[in-house]
Amino acid sequence: MSEPAISIQHVTKVFPIPFKRERVVAVDDLSLTVEPGQVYGLLGPNGSGKSTTMKIVLGLVTPTAGKTEIFGCDSTRVASREQVGFLPENPYFYKFLTGFETLQFFGKLCGLRAKKRDERARELLALVGLEGAADRRIGGYSKGMLQRIGLAQALVQEPRLLVLDEPTAGVDPAGSREIRDLILGFKARGITVLLCSHLLEQVQEICDRVGILHRGKLISEGRLTDLISIENQTELILENASPELLAEIAATTAASGARLVGQRKPQQNLERYFLDVTGGNQ
């Protein structure tokens, strides 16, 4: 059996408040496992402990108690980060570097050799659609471009695990769609993704499994389909159904003792409509 991509075991993080006897429990006895190849959504309101959990997984913050591992390697060890790519919320990079130089820099940090680094930088710029902005300084990038260069740097060493904190925050619908498609592409390539997002609709679209944090505690966790399915209801979507057929179905339903809860025209979502009218789907 393969090792979990992320294993969090009874992790607690307490921040003391300076000059006071009070303390803040940011994460409270958290345990969860992310299997390889999964897209895992970590949800929760502001201050629920999501970012602290991510920082603990990345070794940026040391837990007060408990242990985290990445592919079996203790996440406090530098070696554990060889397998991880991280996109922080509102990513800031060195504004004086161009997009190409940024990827070169992060490639160097990951120990890539010059030729490989060069190839990888060009390949990733093409992947995130920033070939045209490769020689522009990051300081002049838009919010969406920053997110995309952030994704590219996270992928620079071909990691097996991606940790993404609000990857589409502040990005327009077309850019958001592109990022979502990229994440689905990573999933298809077997890359494990830990995703933190407030955009629940998007999480629903791409995550296999979710965990909900509230005040540092994991209050719900499981397969997305299991968590949100209404077990005693069934949805039928018919095309070109005549009023007579609908009446017949309603009568049969009533005769069987079941209850017809609702009947309505399905709607496309606002995002798809927006993309259709602005040409963002082309």
Binding site: L58, V78, R81, E82, F86, P88, L109, G150, Q157
Partner: peptide, 9 residues
């Protein structure tokens, strides 16, 4: 954060 999230001590 982005630098220390790489394998850099």
């Amino acid at each position: 954060y982005t630098v220390l999230a790489k394998p850099v001590s």
